[in-house]
Amino acid sequence: GKELVLALYDYQEKSPREVTMKKGDILTLLNSTNKDWWKVEVKATANDKTYERQGFVPAAYVKKL
């Protein structure tokens, strides 16, 4: 199945390749080969529509579930 990670801290994206997350968010882990930056998929809701974004977050800010 898919691997999930838990956001340990809030993170505000600093570039278009990154994604914003809030502490407590559960994210889908896409790639953890880089030890510093993990690629995740974030589900977000805006205007009653759910959309998914993929991007990088600092590996130290998340932990595998």
Results as ranks from 00 to 15, higher is better:
Trp38Ala: 03
Ala44Phe: 15
Leu27Ser: 02
Tyr11Asn: 01
Glu3Ser: 11
Leu8Tyr: 03
Asp36Cys: 14
Thr20Val: 02
Leu65Ser: 04
Ala7Leu: 03
Asp48Phe: 08
Val42Arg: 13
Thr28Gly: 07
Asp25Val: 04
Lys35Asn: 09
Leu4Gln: 11
Arg53Glu: 05
Thr50Arg: 09
Thr50Tyr: 13
Lys23Trp: 04
Leu29Asp: 00
Lys14Phe: 05
Gln54Asp: 07
Tyr51Ala: 13
Val62Asp: 02
Asp48Pro: 07
Asp36Trp: 15
Asn47Arg: 05
Tyr51Pro: 10
Tyr9Met: 11
Thr33His: 10
Pro58Thr: 02
Lys49Trp: 10
Lys2Arg: 13
Val5Tyr: 07
Gly55Tyr: 04
Leu8Lys: 03
Val62Arg: 00
Lys35Gln: 09
Thr33Trp: 09
Val57Trp: 02
Pro16Leu: 08
Ser32Phe: 05
Asn31Pro: 03
Pro58Ala: 02
Tyr61Cys: 13
Phe56Cys: 10
Leu8Val: 06
Glu52Ile: 15
Asp36Met: 12
Met21Ser: 00
Val5Cys: 13
Val42His: 15
Asp36Val: 14
Thr33Glu: 14
Lys22Asn: 08
Asp48Val: 05
Trp38His: 01
Gln12Arg: 11
Lys22Gln: 10
Val62Ala: 02
Leu27Gly: 05
Thr20Ser: 15
Val5Ser: 02
Lys2Ile: 14
Gln12Ile: 14
Leu27Arg: 00
Glu41Cys: 14
Ala60Ile: 12
Ala60Cys: 14
Gln54Tyr: 06
Lys49Gly: 12
Asp10Ser: 08
Gln12Tyr: 14
Tyr9Phe: 12
Thr28His: 09
Asp10Gln: 03
Met21Arg: 00
Ser15Ala: 07
Pro58Gln: 02
Phe56Trp: 15
Val62Ile: 08
Asp25Glu: 10
Gln12Gly: 07
Lys2Ser: 09
Ile26His: 03
Ser32Arg: 08
Leu30Glu: 02
Ile26Leu: 08
Val40Met: 01
Leu4Trp: 13
Ala46Glu: 14
Glu52Gly: 14
Lys22Ile: 08
Glu13Arg: 13
Asp48Cys: 14
Asp25Leu: 04
Glu3Ile: 14
Pro58Arg: 03
Lys22Ala: 07
Tyr51Ile: 12
Arg17Glu: 12
Pro16Phe: 09
Leu65Phe: 09
Asp10Leu: 02
Asp36His: 14
Pro16Cys: 12
Ser15Val: 04
Leu8Thr: 03
Val57Ile: 08
Trp37Ile: 01
Val62Cys: 14
Arg17Asn: 13
Asn47Lys: 07
Tyr9Ser: 08
Val40Asn: 00
Val42Met: 14
Glu18Arg: 04
Lys49Asp: 10
Leu4Cys: 11
Lys43Gln: 13
Glu13Asp: 04
Lys23Tyr: 04
Gln54Lys: 08
Glu13Ala: 15
Leu6Asn: 01
Lys2Met: 12
Lys64Pro: 10
Lys23Asp: 02
Tyr9Cys: 15
Val5Met: 04
Val62Leu: 15
Lys64Asp: 04
Lys35Tyr: 07
Thr50His: 10
Arg53Gly: 05
Gly24Met: 03
Ala44Ser: 12
Leu8Cys: 05
Val42Ser: 14
Asn47Pro: 10
Tyr11Gly: 00
Thr50Glu: 14
Val19Thr: 05
Leu65Ile: 15
Lys64Tyr: 09
Lys63Ser: 10
Asp10Phe: 03
Val19Cys: 07
Arg17Trp: 15
Glu41Leu: 14
Tyr9Leu: 08
Gly24Asp: 05
Trp38Leu: 03
Tyr51Asp: 09
Gly55Pro: 01
Glu13Ser: 15
Lys2Gln: 10
Lys43Asn: 11
Pro58Phe: 05
Pro16Asp: 10
Asp48Thr: 07
Val5Trp: 06
Thr50Phe: 11
Glu41Asp: 04
Leu29Cys: 05
Gly24Ser: 01
Gly55Arg: 01
Glu18Val: 05
Glu41Gly: 13
Ala44Gly: 12
Asn34Arg: 08
Lys49Asn: 10
Asp48Gln: 09
Asn31Met: 07
Pro58Ser: 03
Arg53Trp: 06
Leu65Trp: 09
Lys22Arg: 12
Asp36Gly: 08
Arg17Gly: 15
Lys35Cys: 11
Ala46Gly: 12
Asp48Arg: 07
Glu13Asn: 07
Val57Met: 00
Met21Pro: 00
Lys23Met: 06
Gly24Val: 01
Leu6Pro: 01
Ala46Val: 15
Gly55Trp: 03
Lys2Asn: 11
Asn47Trp: 12
Gly24Phe: 04
Ala59Ile: 01
Lys43Arg: 13
Asp36Phe: 15
Asp36Tyr: 15
Ala7Asn: 03
Thr50Ser: 10
Gly55Met: 05
Val62Glu: 03
Val5Asn: 00
Ala44Thr: 14
